[in-house]
Write a protein that binds this DNA or RNA. Structure first.
Lengths: 238, 238
DNA sequence: CAACCCATCTTGTATATACAAGCTTATTAT
DNA sequence: ATAATAAGCTTGTATATACAAGATGGGTTG
């Protein structure tokens, strides 16, 4: 009896859904019914229902009741993890090589992506993230100098650009797109590819309250890297 | 004063973080302090802190206090949406063509992915999802017949396989991987590609409480399709 | 000086109560 | 018959209170 009451109620509800006893869009017991069944206060029953609603497992509507959420409306999520953490998690030897660290004049597409004037000075870095000394991902990044003036002085073999930028400009937003592309010859050289192969390319733009901080392009060979995602009914055990 | 008190407190906290006034890992006011500042009960202040914690913006620990969550530990998320919904969302004309609908004997890789005996009978479907009559994605799916016996009798131009399977076997889990691949000649034909180009391939396996339901391969040309993701500090306005 | 205990802060769980607001159904009045 | 009303359910917001449990700092005791 060491597990909290609200957690027991959550477990009860999740079990009924997992087993198929309660189907999609079916009504689940109301707060008052749970209050009776479990001999708890309404606030405790309410907490179980609220937290499962927050988790996307139930939907509630005032005056009507609480229902099992429909699965088809749920979109699945993929994680983009820090690549250094990912390599370390599978006991690989992570290292990083800095290929380029410079300030350049922004051509139009870069300037637009960073929200700065065309031809104004921006910082550019190109790093290679290695697993066991073999290239796994190339990170090309353009940085708004107004928001990270000391960017070029950093040692990115110790602290990743993303970690450094997070500490300098508190991030408020990030957007990603993932696509499949063919690498150009320069990219093939960086990735040490003997013959062309399709690559996963992640474009990431990050914002702080003061504006767009940076614009990164992460390219990995399709044969070596994939994104993973996992969607499950949460067990919510403490 | 129509917005609830707990929402006002959440807004106050989020604003302080967004503006940079409260930095990573910095302590935020305790429940009792918020209770005084906003003249609310402790339970209301607590609700604001709890919900922001659930959203990943704060972290709490008993006895210590509540702190601004660190950004670097957050991994970014990408959504895999239903392709029919996505096409409709941008006012495209969605249609679907059924190329194959058959039962086959599972070769080893398929049997393993579905968790059935090698050479046992499984269902297979190949659909093409079109936007404005042009192929956007090929969906090749293998289905465990024990969990969806009427699969071959369905009309998938009306109801997607995922929707049908969700209604027959309540889903409990899904796993995805995304990678970049080159299509083979058969796939090129299905996708109406004149010259080879890299494709995004999503592999999705779905579980119900009774076991693995299906195994799907979703292939889209890199020039026409990309996955998007958006990560932001939630505003939590009701 | 070091070890222990305690007061006091924090968050976590739980209850009882009150009223507001959305939805359905049955009743009443036109 | 139709329309308005009221009753009775639902969830939503808010308060006051109580005790439990983790963390910290200070003071007493050995």
């Amino acid at each position: 009896m060491t597990t909290p009451k609200f957690a027991q109620i959550k477990q009860f509800i999740v079990d009924n859904i997992r087993s198929g006893a309660w189907l999609e869009n079916q009504r689940v017991p109301s707060e008052n019914e749970l209050t009776e069944q479990f001999s708890v206060s309404r606030m405790t029953a309410r907490r179980a229902l609220s937290e499962l609603t927050e988790a996307g497992i139930l939907t509630r509507s005032q005056g009507l009741g609480t229902f099992v959420a429909s699965f088809k409306s749920q979109s699945s999520l993929l994680e983009i993890k820090n690549i250094a953490d990912e390599v370390k998690a599978r006991n690989g030897n992570y290292s990083c090589t800095v290929l380029v660290l410079e300030s350049i004049n922004a051509v139009a597409p870069i300037a637009i992506a960073l929200g700065v004037e065309v031809n104004s000075v921006v910082y550019r870095s190109v790093l290679v993230h290695n697993e066991n000394e073999l290239p796994l991902q190339v990170e090309e990044r353009f940085v708004n100098p107004a928001l990270a003036s000391n960017y070029l002085q950093q040692d990115f073999t110790a602290l990743t650009p993303h970690e450094y930028l997070s500490s300098v400009a508190p991030l408020t937003e990030a957007r990603h797109t993932v696509e499949a592309v063919m690498p150009n010859s320069e990219m093939c050289q960086w990735l040490n590819l003997y013959h062309e192969e399709p690559c996963l390319q992640v474009i990431r733009r990050t914002w702080s309250s003061a504006g767009i901080v940076s614009f990164a392009r992460l390219v990995s060979p399709g044969s070596k890297y994939r994104l993973g995602g996992h969607l499950t009914f949460k067990n919510n055990k403490k």
